[in-house]
Amino acid sequence: MIRADHIIKSFDGRIVLNDITAEFTPGITNLIIGQSGSGKTVLLKSLVGLHKIDSGNIFYNDICFNTLPFAQMKAIRKEVGMLFQGGALLDSSNVEENVRLPLDLFTNMPMDEKRDRVNFCLKRVNLGNVNHLYPAELSGGMIKRVAIARAIVLNPKYLFCDEPNSGLDPMTSVLIDNLIQEITQEYNITTIINTHDMNSVMEIGEHIIFIYKGEKWWEGTKHDILHTDNQELNDFVFASAMAKRAKAAEQQ
């Protein structure tokens, strides 16, 4: 479980996150949604410790993460997997080396065992025979899947995904969404996903937080989102034709 407690973050005096309090439970997909520039990515990066928050606290299973000394913070980070918007695979390493990197650095497994684990994770994300390809040789969807494989290779307790569907076609997006949801349920991971893709919201939105101008504006599930009278959220949600159709179908 991850809990954000009244967190505030500003850049050069400009407040980007204002008094955000939220709780993210394991085993379900927690979504942070909002318009571009609303502060979603800053919130995600603050939760994972890439941004230092101005005030408030972030708890990982009742351990106050943001006040931990660097060495202990690093220990918690080994339990964290993160999927970045562009995949963030190391360009100079091939797929196998990318996925194996956390194992190389933090385990004493023999090479055969590491290869087995890498192949298992790649198979889990439906990738085969790509071990020796470099990131430049992969498609956008494959990069995201390799990044997921790398994120889960150490059996993380926490998984953060920043815009996992950006730049992907609708079919691949659904595949990635379902994959993240399956992994979350299978390993009981605390998963937090940043997105502005309404398809994802309607597909896997088990717990949704809507961020508007740096503030938590609304909280609920994918079922609640169609019935809210929150104007800003409605403006955001029903900008998508898909959501309009979903609401119309529900009303019929």
């Binding site: 990066k45 690093k74 980070r77 993160m82 963030a88």
Partner: peptide
């Protein structure tokens, strides 16, 4: 390039210096 493509952030998240 590693910095702007978030590869360095990815290493930090893994707990790597």
């Amino acid at each position: 390039t590693m910095r702007i493509t978030e590869q360095i952030d990815a290493l930090e998240i893994m707990g790597v210096n």
